[in-house]
């Protein structure tokens, strides 16, 4: 079946992917960090460079793209970057960030009951042979397609089912400041 963006007519055909979740989802990230995408950052545009966390645009962006590529080909999806903030996360004030999506618990499809559906797109999880599913920390049954959860949470901080504010417990446990330093170290 088609992915969330296709089904909802959002996104564009360049980034449209054949299957819900999985590698299809990852390829959207790759499109966004492709050399053409980054090379539009002019040398003098210090603000864009800061956003991307890059010392010298093109070269490092290739490295990151390569890292992403290898992560995907190994089946891992450890995107430790916030490269896409400008493109994909239009209102970061209220929503959750990429680090949060990365930290969400992934659910193996073996744990999914036949017929169980995503509360957001209403598709059966198991219709997709390689579903990419996450569980929100508020309740063990609050499982969503990663893509659907991301679409909502990039602009909101609440669980769609119970409205638990997902940034509250996180703040209590982790220290956002040190996390940020870590991200910078990754780029540095």
């Amino acid at each position: 079946m088609s992915n969330y963006n296709d089904e909802h007519g959002i996104g564009n055909s360049q980034t449209a992917t054949p299957a819900r979740g999985g590698v299809g989802h990852a390829s959207q990230f790759l499109n966004l960090v492709s050399p053409e995408h980054l090379s539009r950052t002019p040398a003098g545009d210090s603000e864009s460079q800061l956003d991307l966390g890059l010392e010298n645009g093109g070269e490092i962006s290739h490295q990151i793209a390569q890292q992403l590529l290898s992560a995907v080909s190994e089946g891992g999806l450890e995107f430790r970057t916030d490269l896409d903030d400008n493109e994909m996360f239009k209102s970061p004030q209220k929503g959750m960030d990429q680090a949060y999506f990365d930290s969400l618990e992934r659910i193996n499809k073996k744990k999914i009951r036949p017929g169980q559906t995503c509360p957001i797109c209403a598709s059966e999880f198991l219709e997709d042979p390689y579903p990419l599913l996450v569980r929100l920390p508020c309740h063990k049954n609050h499982v969503f397609d990663l893509e659907c959860a991301t679409s909502w949470l990039k602009e909101h901080n609440t669980c769609p089912i119970c409205r638990t504010e997902l940034d509250k417990p996180k703040k209590a446990v982790a220290q956002p400041d040190s996390e940020e330093d870590e991200d910078m170290a990754f780029f540095g």
């Binding site: 089904e7 909802h8 007519g9 957001i120 797109c121 209403a122």
Partner: peptide, 12 residues
């Protein structure tokens, strides 16, 4: 117009 999302079909 883009095709109707599956969710809307199911709800209807």
């Amino acid at each position: 117009m883009a095709s109707l999302p599956k969710r809307i079909i199911k709800e209807t």
